[in-house]
Write a protein that binds this DNA or RNA. Structure first.
Length: 354
DNA sequence: TATGCGTGGCC
DNA sequence: TGGCCAAGCAT
């Protein structure tokens, strides 16, 4: 073990975070945590993880649940394909591996939702395999420590960083080594304003000249985010409200929403809403009073959504683009997993009409 | 190789 | 306020 790894592990022993999925002998718990942590902060994940493990304590419990139950438990965490893939993978593990998670990273990587990083993380943390990981934290820490100038999100930069991670891996300690680098990246070697004075590796860091740390890692420029005008129809009948289920795979896949869609350039809001409802559900509506304006920023675009109270005027709704439809009682809206904006509308609907 | 996929916190 | 970022994966 070299100087770098020894100091890193010493630091981890003293300052590593105590997290609910650490120190468990349960590979399933490690797996769940790794999926939840993809592109998501630890503080956000902790309460979801606790609730998840109480609701689906074992891999078999998860495999026996319904997709809707799983999406409900995931609601608010984002990137919902993670939940669907985790559920599908659990069923696959029960069907093909007798309910035991495979230990080999190349086999793990064949399961939906498990890529190169997650396979290595599970193999090293849950099964003690000597495999290096490379995630956002490690990219940043290693790019600074070894002053890597190649873009960290390019294949060339990745290859350099991956070999650095591997060269320094202390045999028999991969799980701790990987997690130590993640903790260092999350608590000390921060993206902005790194706390170099608290870093156990500061004197080894090749980017320790003033300002150089924050110039690492080098990343490719991003595109600007478009802004869309969107409408949604709140259609009520007999104390119930019309919901549409979004098709699987895309944005908020499998979740429920108040039907509607994008408004065209120069198109009036009410016209756009009538057109969307006609195309989506095959019915005509009368657009009534406004029921709120909701602004929301997704990662790659932002929307301004106008909701309207509406009535059916022509025909019974049938699912066309949407996968399914429901007339939902206001009391039961919690049972329909939704994205953030639709959940806001649902809550306000209950407050006003229940 | 580039793009789509959520949400919350920070400045 | 809008932009950036946070334990990636699938296509």
């Amino acid at each position: 073990m070299n100087e770098f790894s020894r100091r890193l592990l010493d630091w981890y022993e003293r300052f590593g975070r105590r997290l609910p999925w650490r120190g468990r002998a349960d590979p399933y718990a490690v797996w769940v945590s790794e999926i939840m942590l993809q592109q998501t902060r630890v503080e956000t994940v902790v309460p979801y993880f606790e609730r998840w493990m109480a609701r689906f304590p074992t891999l078999a419990d998860l495999a026996g649940a319904s997709e809707q139950e799983v999406l409900s438990a995931w609601e608010g965490l984002g990137y919902y394909s993670r939940a669907r893939n985790l559920w599908r993978a659990a069923r696959q593990v029960v069907a093909e591996y007798g309910g035991r998670l495979p230990e080999d990273p190349t086999i793990l990587q064949r399961l939906p939702g498990i890529g190169r990083y997650t396979a290595a993380a599970i193999a090293s943390i849950a099964f003690g395999r000597d495999v290096p990981t490379l995630d956002g934290n490690l990219r940043r820490v290693l790019a600074r420590l070894f002053d890597v100038a190649a873009p960290a999100d390019s294949p060339a930069g990745e290859a350099v960083l991956r070999s650095l991670a591997e060269e320094n891996l202390p045999p028999g300690r991969a799980g701790d080594y990987n997690q130590a680098l993640m903790d260092l990246g999350a608590t000390v070697c921060l993206p902005r304003k790194p706390r170099c004075s608290a870093c156990p590796l500061a004197d080894l860091c090749r980017a320790r000249a003033a300002g150089v740390q924050e110039a690492r890692p080098v990343l490719k420029p991003k595109k600007e985010t478009p802004h869309y005008l969107v409408t949604a129809a709140v259609v009520r009948r007999n104390g119930k409200v019309l919901l549409a289920q979004r098709p699987p795979g895309g944005l908020l896949g499998g979740l429920w929403e108040f039907p509607g869609g994008k408004v065209g350039e120069g198109e009036a809001l009410a016209d756009g809403l009538r057109r969307e409802i006609r195309e989506e559900l095959g019915v005509g509506i009368r657009v009534g009073e406004a029921f709120g304006v909701y602004r929301h920023a997704y990662t790659h675009f932002r929307i301004t959504l106008h909701a309207f109270l509406c009535e059916l005027t022509d025909g019974e709704p049938r699912p066309l683009a949407a996968a399914d439809l429901a007339w939902a009682a206001l009391e039961a809206l919690e049972n329909y997993p939704m994205g953030k904006v639709d959940r806001q509308i649902a809550r306000r609907l209950k407050a006003e009409f229940l």
